[in-house]
């Protein structure tokens, strides 16, 4: 589904990713862990098409297509979704308009009729229950005045509405209390299917207790230095990242 080959990325001349290789197949859950500044968020941003990153080498193909050539909105419509680490507040853009436009853009892309207002509200009610979203929140502007936890729930709620093929959760656990964490994880797990793949970017093993990965990769200094099964997360939790740093000559 997603194939990253020898990816080098720099920001303002500074090299952040230094040769990433990663294969993700349908239905798999991959966790990307690593200390601060290792390039985790850069990888997530490059995959979703954020500007400001120079791809100096390598390629990324998604379902056989060159992902890096696609605009962010086209990637989204092709099924890539990112749950933002810091969801943006957009005063004046009502949640309902925003979500309805997004859902209908996806439908248009699939040659489906747009949902009517009534159909959309019904869909929204359904998906809201999944993440226990407060009904009032969808009456506001996008993320405006949402608490940290509400913002993260809102990301998973949007994911549920858009039903992506590849979901990238960028530090979805940061800023969440344990109850919110469980709710968010429950939402993610409910969306699990043999066709849907998930990339979980996180510092901590905590989230991985709830969203169990098939593979864990450690990103350090712009490279994937270790890949293993879910047991690697526990090892990292117990030992910290220092041994990784030592192994890699720091």
């Amino acid at each position: 589904m997603l194939s990253i080959k020898n990816l080098f990325v720099s920001v303002e001349g500074k090299e952040i990713l230094k040769g990433i290789n990663l294969e993700i197949n349908p239905g798999e859950v991959h966790a990307i862990m690593g200390p601060n500044g290792s390039g985790k968020s850069t990888l997530a941003n490059v995959l979703t098409g954020k500007e400001g990153y120079d791809i100096t080498e390598g390629e990324v193909s998604y379902n056989g297509e060159d992902l890096l050539e696609m605009a962010p909105e086209d990637r989204a419509k092709e099924g890539i979704f990112m749950s933002f680490q810091y969801p943006v507040e957009i005063p004046g853009v009502p949640m309902v308009n925003f979500l309805k436009t997004a859902v209908n853009e996806h439908r248009k892309h699939r040659n489906e009729e747009p949902l009517t207002a009534g159909e959309f509200l019904k869909l929204m009610r359904e998906k809201k229950e999944l993440v226990e979203m407060d009904t009032q929140l969808t009456n506001r502007s996008v993320n405006e005045g949402f608490s940290g936890g509400e913002k993260k729930k809102n990301e998973i709620f949007q994911m549920a509405l858009l039903e992506p093929k590849l979901a990238i959760l960028d530090e979805t656990d940061s800023g969440l209390d344990i109850d919110a964490l469980k709710t968010v994880a429950r939402g993610v797990n409910a969306l699990k299917s043999p066709e849907r793949s998930t990339v979980v970017v996180t510092h901590y093993q905590r989230l991985l207790d709830y969203i169990v990965p098939d593979f864990v990769h450690v990103l350090y200094n712009g490279k994937i230095v270790k890949s293993a099964g879910k047991e690697l997360a526990h090892e990292l939790e117990a030992k910290g990242y220092d041994w990784i740093k030592k192994e890699n000559g720091n």
């Binding site: 098409g49 954020k50 962010p72 909105e73 979704f81 925003f98 997004a102």
Partner: peptide
């Protein structure tokens, strides 16, 4: 970018 990342054209 946030809006575009949800499939809405620039």
């Amino acid at each position: 970018f946030y809006i575009r990342s949800r499939g809405i054209a620039e």
